[in-house]
């Protein structure tokens, strides 16, 4: 569904991605692991065009999207949940969700999708008139995910959706991701929580210093000492 072929990206003179190639097959959950500064966020920002890369051979559903304007990406069926619970702080929860459907013309579809998001995260229905900036971290994350879902994406990119959240909320978010997957959404997930991410994912890539160093089925990586090494060093 999504394919990156030798993508390079840099900030100024500093190259942060060195020939990253990865693919996300339709209907799968793929996760992207790696320590801080490994280039995970840059990878997804490059995919959606928020970061312009020097070599951007990226294909979505077989069509190149490397040169697509970032605000058009969502209309292709790719939605991204940026890191750090990126909401519109001075808008209500309901308005945040509506913004996610900015490119959707059909009003009844928006209402329907709002229903689905409320179903997925009931707390958002309770707090729909609260300003998003006043919500707790976990709830803001739900708003951000909900907003991404409002465009009916085929592919959902999530950048560290559980960063800094309490374990109970982490579990809730992962449950939601499982449900979305069972409804047919393909997912590319960045997470620090390697064990949990691997438990959910079908396939995983480990980035180190902007390069893919390990890849494989999640079951295989789960028991792979190299993954642990990437995080905790040699023992």
């Amino acid at each position: 569904m999504l394919e990156l072929n030798g993508v390079r990206s840099s900030y100024g003179r500093i190259q942060v991605l060195h020939d990253v190639s990865l693919s996300v097959p339709e209907g799968k959950i793929v996760c992207l692991l790696g320590a801080n500064g490994a280039g995970k966020t840059t990878t997804v920002r490059t995919i959606v065009g928020l970061h312009r890369s020097t070599k951007n051979d990226i294909k979505f559903l077989g069509k190149p999207i490397g040169a697509t304007a970032p605000h058009k990406i969502v209309t292709l069926g790719i939605a991204m949940v940026p890191e750090r619970r990126d909401v519109f702080p001075d808008m209500t929860v309901a308005d945040n969700l509506t913004m996610g459907a900015y490119s959707v013309k059909n009003r009844s579809q928006v209402r329907e999708d709002m229903e689905r998001v409320h179903n997925l995260f009931p707390v958002l229905a309770e707090r729909k008139s609260a300003y998003a900036g006043t919500l707790s971290g976990g709830q803001q994350q739900m708003v951000a995910i909900g907003r991404a879902l409002m465009s009916r994406p085929k592919l959902l990119l999530l950048d560290e959706p559980t960063l800094g959240l309490a374990p109970l909320l982490v579990r809730q978010i992962f449950e939601a991701l499982k449900r979305l997957h069972s409804e047919g959404i393909t997912i590319l997930l960045i997470d620090q929580n390697a064990r949990q991410a691997l438990a959910l994912a079908d396939y995983a890539y480990v980035l180190e210093n902007g390069r893919v160093v390990i890849e494989g089925d999640s079951g295989f990586l789960h028991s792979n000492p190299d993954v642990r090494r990437a995080y905790l060093g040699a023992i």
């Binding site: 579990r171 992962f174 449950e175 929580n193 390697a194 949990q196 995080y231 905790l232 060093g233």
Partner: peptide, 18 residues
């Protein structure tokens, strides 16, 4: 530290019981 269970959990994540 490398043997500390709490540290390993913090890094690799607690395995979900759910």
């Amino acid at each position: 530290i490398q043997k500390d269970a709490a540290v390993i959990d913090a890094y690799l994540g607690e395995v979900s019981n759910a």
